[in-house]
Design a protein around this nucleic acid. Structure first.
Lengths: 187, 187
DNA sequence: ACCCAAAAGTGATTTTCGTCACACCAAAGT
DNA sequence: ACTTTGGTGTGACGAAAATCACTTTTGGGT
């Protein structure tokens, strides 16, 4: 199962078995049940999560109680309240399970340890971070450019997997549209 | 002037004079006039830009000719069409000068050269990229959470410098609101 | 097989914001 | 000094989406 992580790293830099074992020893596997929280607003955020199986959501709850979803966490994705994680402050975001989920946990200490010990791992994380930055920029552009229906269709086309596991009200929350409005878009 | 760059790097990792001179030798200084393009849709994007002086805007022009501003470039900021830059594809974004501007240019080749030669520079760029990711996440959250007026006031409070140099129609385009609507928000 | 809760569709109404049209002002160019 | 251009405010109007209220469907748990 952790081969998923190895494959992801090896898309950027090759690894020997020994190297990967060493890297993996810095991660802790964990399993969570549907609706269980991995991170909750106000708490510390010791870990970044690499998703092996299942589905997570990362979201903020606004003053009037509405959920705003920043990201989903499907297998092969990283997910975390990075602001709280990197700056070691309290979480302002929540992460919980859309379905039963397995993750690999990476503490900030172990991340920085790996990065300083293995230059190629720091390289890997830089590349991942750059790619993440680009993805968020494109999402912002999509919010500026497109109306809700266009964003919906774009997401449907770009990431059809989401629509198999995730209730539409969560998709609506991710797109920044009301559930009712989204429901009126042609199937 | 290039001290701005040194200070930024030294917030993350200390440098000797010799090290900084070596780093700086990988950058090319350039000056641009108001309205001049640094990057134009359809062209190659050989350089990332570190802004020393002036003001830039990074934007996409949609099919119906509207500008959607992704980012401004003020002194001490990095700005680029990172998708085109890192993947060496043609630009889909434009960068031009809101006012006369001075930058330091960093080619992808020199960036990767520095990163592989000096582990601490790779560390620096990873940290910057992480910080950028967090900033974009917060912008997305602000777009999901807040109505245009709240976003306007938030920006005003968070970044009052923008309002001194930048015409309001550009602020409107950055916030994703029409110029007229923005104009109706309290002074 | 049944019950209950959550998900999803739908109509009516209200709100928000974009668009169009125009007036005004200040700065830049001739 | 005069013109031109770009930036800005403002009113009237319409389109799009949020909200509210309700129904239908689905799926999980006992």
């Amino acid at each position: 199962m952790s081969q998923l992580l190895r494959q992801q790293i090896e898309k950027i830099t090759p690894l020997t078995d020994g190297e990967f074992d060493y890297i993996l020893s810095h991660f802790t596997p964990k399993k969570y049940k549907k609706h269980q929280f991995l991170v909750q607003e106000g708490e510390d955020v010791p870990n970044d999560f690499f998703v092996l199986k299942g589905c997570l959501k990362l979201y903020h709850t606004s003053a009037d109680g509405k959920e705003h979803i920043l990201q989903f966490g499907l297998p092969d994705w990283w997910i975390c309240d990075y602001n709280a994680y990197f700056n070691q402050t309290k979480a302002t975001l929540n992460i919980d399970c859309v379905e039963d989920t397995e993750v690999l946990c990476l503490s900030l200490y172990n991340r920085e340890k790996l990065c300083s010990e293995m230059h190629r791992i720091e390289h890997f994380f830089r590349r991942k971070s750059n790619a993440g930055y680009i993805a968020l920029q494109q999402r912002i552009l999509s919010m500026l450019n497109n109306n809700p229906q266009q964003r919906y269709e774009q997401l449907l086309q770009l990431n059809p997997i989401l629509f198999q596991k995730i209730p539409k009200k969560l998709i609506a929350s991710y797109l920044g549209v009301s559930r009712e409005t989204l429901s009126r878009f042609g199937s």
